[in-house]
Amino acid sequence: MTPPTEPTPGGTVLSVRGLCVRFEMRDGSYVRAVTDASFDLAAGECLALVGESGCGKSVLASALLGLLPANASVAGSAVLGDAGSGAGGLDLLAADERVLAREVRGRRVGLVPQSPVAHLTPVRTVRSHLDETVRALTGTSGPDGVRAAAGRAAFPEDHLDRHPHQLSGGLAQRAATALALVGDASLLLADEPTTGLDRDLVERTVDELRRHTGDHRALLLITHDLAAAGRIADRVAVMYAGRLVEITDAAAFFGAPGPRHPYARGLLNALPERDFAPVPGLPPELGALPEGCAFAPRCDRASEACATVPELTSGVACHHVAVARA
């Protein structure tokens, strides 16, 4: 295996085109969890994927890692690495399990898990976790590699011999981050890394993730926590009922002029520091999506135009925004 060359700042790390995921149900019908997702992720960039629970954002992460259950199937492509630079453009969706296990997970894509304590083996110390991962991913062993790996995630050296349950939430999160960073992957994938953490700890965790992104890595942060996303993201992708409805610059999204898609605006306004008003209604069932724009039944601007599915053009998928711009 040749070590993947370091992506240059600004080079494409991940290019997703037309990604779809569907699940075959027992009665033979299909449920589409992700439909036609396309986005690019550049080195040094952090993209936050936000949306309500059950909108399909975690399914998207599992698809990228090849961790979907047996009744799922995927379409589209998700090319890892800059195809132009010769760093090896690998389609994550087409790669077989052996390639994913040996070359991708941990080596080219580092996963920062949702619940770090559950991610660590309870009967083993942090040192033995790190030691094993360092040996498996870099082929070297010994205390130096472990210390360096711990140091990278600011995990205190005197806590290395503790077991997961003896760590505070923040330290467990750092241990999991240290493991994700060992392989020096060019893409970090963080799936709800802050669920159940205190506000202070949320901020520390995402700040550290941002710091590790540096110039040469890309970070895909999947979260329902808009405040966390607003803190570190360069760009924001909003997912609704399995589709990306807006991808835009984070500064514009959280500041002025704000989100353009009505759903994204509603979601942001639901924050307690803003209007604290919910988006009316419930998200639709992925198995029974309405015809046309999935948000129309909850949207105050819905009209006849919404009977067709809006295309994602110039970063937003809404008939009314497109009309306003034309």
């Binding site: 037309g18 779809c20 047996a70 799922a72 199937s73 379409a75």
Partner: peptide, 13 residues
Amino acid sequence: KTEVWRTRAVVRR
């Protein structure tokens, strides 16, 4: 659009 669906681990099921 034509979509090509791929799936894993059909045999085990």
